[in-house]
């Protein structure tokens, strides 16, 4: 027998840590997806695709701006001491990923806005006529457009990586304590973004390209999962227990059915058939990928909080 009894009963801490509820997974998902969208839109600018009149790179940054703002709003809702939120910006804490994230977000917005300014929508021009003048000037400078593309890719990469690093540096939660988490979140963000562009792209070639890219991202994501679990399973007992939470423990049904099955394997099969022209492209597979990405963040945040160094003493 080995029993432990505690009189502590702090809200959202005991019996199981549940401090972070829906807001953080939503924020991490939207942040990751926007990161992916920035990388894709940046790549389109960099590779000169923006010369196509219906390039998705013109609508992606505006949608990214809205999604990112929604994500930040979710993060704000999570803060328990809201009136003090500005304190994030009176300091820079070198060792704190959250501080890095707060400042990265400050870089991301201008990069997105620069991308929007290359070709603002008619709706924006109607409201601010000067925008078309600015756009005209930017369009004369191809080097500038390429650089805006590079900046979007770079800041997208930083944003996507940060969403994973944020959790993986919290070493007290064994499930998060893997340095592959940022790769997982980045690839999952890219895959959700590719699915989104596949869904909305008006340009056939782009839609097809993104469906293929998404297949690649989904395969890499599966590979990252395998590597992540190999790492955790060959680590200390708390990490083995944390991996088992997903593989065959309390979170296994939701992990296998929704994250792996619905979020990766089934859409991968559908999209492989679609790019080989065996079935038609439908919105089903990309929607599954996007929803799967959201559920992935919920599972990782919730199971991560459940995983604990103490648990290893009791099995």
């Amino acid at each position: 027998m080995h029993e432990i009894f505690t009189t502590r009963n702090n809200p959202y801490v005991d019996p199981i840590m549940a401090m972070w509820e829906w807001q953080i997974p939503v924020y991490l998902f939207l942040g990751g997806m926007v990161a992916g969208m920035m990388i894709i839109a940046g790549y389109f600018l960099f590779s000169g695709r923006h010369k196509e009149s219906n390039c998705a790179c013109f609508s992606i940054p505006f949608t990214s701006l809205i999604l990112l703002s929604l994500g930040m709003f979710a993060l704000f809702l999570d803060l328990a001491h809201k009136p003090y939120v500005w304190r994030l910006y009176t300091t820079f804490q070198l060792k704190s990923p959250m501080s890095w994230g707060a400042w990265i977000l400050i870089l991301v917005y201008p990069a997105l806005i620069a991308n929007i300014l290359i070709r603002p929508s008619q709706w924006m021009i109607n409201r601010v006529p000067k925008l078309s003048e600015i756009a005209g000037k930017i369009q004369q400078h191809h080097i500038l457009i390429r650089n805006i593309g590079i900046l979007n890719m770079l800041f997208g990469l930083m944003l996507g990586a940060y969403t994973g690093v944020l959790l993986s540096t919290l070493g007290s939660r064994p499930l998060w304590n893997t340095s592959l988490l940022w790769v997982l979140f980045l690839v999952s963000g890219l895959s959700a973004a590719a699915a989104y562009v596949h869904l909305v792209a008006k340009n056939k070639a782009e839609s097809e390209l993104l469906a293929k890219a998404d297949n690649g991202f989904l395969v890499v994501e599966l590979f990252v999962f395998v590597m992540m679990f190999l790492g955790l399973l060959s680590s200390a007992k708390p990490h083995i227990e944390a991996a088992n939470l997903l593989l065959n423990g309390a979170y296994a049904p939701i992990f296998w059915v929704f994250v792996i099955g619905m979020g990766i394997v089934i859409p991968l099969i559908i999209q492989l058939l679609a790019v080989n022209h065996k079935v038609k492209h439908t919105p089903i597979a990309p929607i599954m990928v996007i929803v799967g990405g959201l559920i992935l963040r919920f599972v990782i945040v919730s199971a991560g909080q459940y995983s604990h160094w103490f648990n290893a003493h009791f099995h």
Binding site: M19, W20, D78, A80, H81, K82, Y84, M98
Partner: peptide
């Protein structure tokens, strides 16, 4: 700011 990172 009550971000709860330290609690986690």
């Amino acid at each position: 700011i009550g971000c709860k990172a330290c609690v986690e």
